[in-house]
C-alpha cells in the first residue's frame, strides 16, 4: 500500500509555544484514518498545517510529504494552490453567514472549478444534490442551487460543506475532513456518514484523514491518537451506534432509529 501522505516528526509552535511535538503518521491508499485526541491538543492545527492554512504565527518543523507534490512545507505559492486544489478538504467551521449573497450553486460550482477548471450550471448543481443527498419525505430537496446558505441552520450549512467537496472532488487522492458532524441532527449525521462512505467506496484508492469525536463511522480503518507526547496507533478502537443503529455490511446507515 503506497502512502499518499506521510507526516514525519511534525512539530508546531504557535507564538513560540509548543503545541504539537514529533508527530509522525501516514495515510495510505484506501485507508480511512481517524485522528483522535482531547480538545485543544492540536488535531485541527495538524490538518491545517497539511494544507498550509492559517499559518500566521505558526512555526512548523518536520516534513509533510505528499505523493504527488513532495514536501508540502517547501511548496511555493503557486504549487501550494495546486496542491490545495487536488485535496478534498472539508474545514471545521462554516462561515456562509459572512459571505454576502452567496448561493449553494456558487459553493458547489467553485469547489468543482478550483479542482477541474470547469464550473457548473444550476441544473448540474441540482443534479449533484439529487445524486448525493436524499430528498425529504415531502419530495423536496434539503436545498437547491439557488438557496442562500446564509439563511441555513448550522446543520444545513454543515451538510452543504461536506456535499460541496465530496460531490465535486470524488476522484481526489486524499480527503481531509475536520469534524464533519458539527451541528448535525441524527438524520443528517447519518447522511454525512453515508456520503463519506459512498465516496470512499466509489474511489477505493482515496485516502481519508478525519477528525471526529463521534464514533459512528463504520468505514474507519485505523485510529491515530494524539497526545501531548505525540501520535500513536489506537489499538482498541470503539464504535458507537447508539444514536443511529447499526450500519449495514457495506457501512451504510439505512434506517433511522
Amino acid at each position: 500500500m503506497e502512502n499518499i501522505l506521510s507526516i514525519q516528526d511534525l512539530s508546531i509552535r504557535i507564538n513560540k509555544q509548543p503545541l504539537v511535538e514529533n508527530v509522525s503518521f501516514s495515510v495510505g491508499e484506501g485507508e480511512a484514518i481517524l485522528l483522535s485526541g482531547a480538545n485543544g491538543i492540536g488535531k485541527s492545527t495538524i490538518l491545517k498545517s497539511i494544507l498550509q492554512l492559517e499559518m500566521d504565527g505558526k512555526d512548523i518543523s518536520g516534513q509533510i510529504i505528499n505523493r504527488s507534490f513532495g514536501n508540502v512545507l517547501s511548496l511555493n505559492g503557486t504549487e501550494l494552490q495546486r496542491f490545495r486544489s487536488s485535496i478534498a478538504y472539508i474545514q471545521q467551521k462554516d462561515e456562509y453567514s459572512e459571505m454576502g449573497s452567496i448561493q449553494v450553486r456558487d459553493i458547489i460550482s467553485e469547489s468543482r472549478e478550483a479542482h477541474t477548471g470547469k464550473n457548473l450550471s444550476n441544473a448540474e448543481v441540482n443534479d449533484l444534490i439529487d445524486k448525493w443527498i436524499p430528498r425529504r419525505s415531502d419530495g423536496k430537496r434539503v436545498f437547491d442551487a439557488n438557496s442562500k446558505p446564509a439563511k441555513f441552520s448550522g446543520g444545513e450549512q454543515r451538510l452543504l460543506s461536506v456535499l460541496s467537496v465530496i460531490a465535486t472532488r470524488p476522484n481526489a487522492e486524499l480527503m481531509i475532513i475536520d469534524e464533519p458532524l458539527n451541528n448535525l441532527d441524527f438524520v443528517n449525521a447519518r447522511n454525512i456518514s453515508n456520503l463519506i462512505n459512498r465516496v470512499i467506496k466509489d474511489n477505493p484508492k482515496m485516502g481519508l484523514l478525519m477528525i471526529s469525536h463521534c464514533r459512528i463511522f463504520p468505514f474507519i480503518t485505523r485510529e491515530i491518537g494524539l497526545t501531548a507526547k505525540g501520535a500513536s496507533l489506537v489499538e482498541e478502537r470503539y464504535a458507537c451506534h447508539s444514536c443511529f443503529g447499526e450500519a449495514n455490511a457495506e457501512g451504510f446507515y439505512t434506517e433511522y432509529r
Binding site: Q81, F83, R84, Y89, Q91, I102, E110
Partner: peptide, 18 residues
C-alpha cells in the same frame, strides 16, 4: 472585510493565486 470569508474559502479550495 466584506470579501474576506469568501477569499479564504477560495484559497482553501485551491484557486490560482494570480
Amino acid at each position: 472585510k466584506g470579501v474576506s470569508h469568501n477569499f479564504r474559502r477560495l484559497i482553501t479550495l485551491g484557486f490560482e493565486r494570480e
